[in-house]
Design a protein around this nucleic acid. Structure first.
Lengths: 115, 115
DNA sequence: CAGCATCCGGCCAGATACTG
DNA sequence: CAGTATCTGGCCGGATGCTG
């Protein structure tokens, strides 16, 4: 039991590029498919769909369909996902504080005399 | 400037599967190449080397070579990486607390009547 | 011990076209 | 609007062999 659900695999899943973006974008309340597509620059429709399905399957997203025309679908974070979002904030905050440091470190590394 | 160093790219880099493992493994002090190899189950020598190089280039790891025979190389986290490690702890703690929830959500999702 | 070089197969993700 | 289906190519990463 719990196969495919080690801590490593789970971190891997939720820390995935598009997963993070979706979790951040949906943190402020329910959001629609097209809104997500616009909010997350660079994501393809395919990857958006696949990532949404995975997050929904993992119990991170609730998918609500309003039977109107045109159809309207909203995604919202579950409590579990909200907790994760708080933890992710620590990472993104760190990234913002240190992106110049990292850029400088790279320049420095690349400028070394090639051994 | 700062090209290739957006917050998204940076999160992507440091949240990578093997990066996380290395950051965790090296958090308790300097660690040798072979020790990392043993500590991180499933990693290949190639990926260990590549990930170490990237983390070093990004200023997250300091690589110390002791000119002995046989050679001895130790990797230790920089202050910046230690901060990141603390943030990563929030994620792994979350993952530990919720892995059963996620596993159950998956079972439930997979057991739905296929539409 | 701690790597690097090379080859190669698999799968991940983009592009495109179609639908309830 | 919110998807699904199929094809396809690129690159990621494993396997292997060689060195200071």
């Amino acid at each position: 039991m719990l196969s495919g659900c080690t801590v490593q695999e789970l971190v891997d899943r939720v820390a995935g590029k598009w997963s993070v973006c979706i979790l951040v974008a949906a943190a402020d309340g329910p959001i629609r498919f097209t809104e997500l597509e616009r909010a997350i620059s660079g994501i393809s429709r395919r990857m958006l769909t696949l990532t949404l399905r995975n997050l929904e399957r993992d119990g991170m997203l609730v998918r609500t369909v309003y039977p109107t025309v045109p159809p309207r679908v909203e995604y919202s974070l579950t409590p579990m996902a909200l907790e994760l979002h708080a933890a992710l904030l620590a990472i993104t905050t760190w990234a913002e504080r240190h992106r110049t440091d990292v850029a400088l470190a790279r320049e420095h590394y690349d400028a070394r005399p090639t051994p």
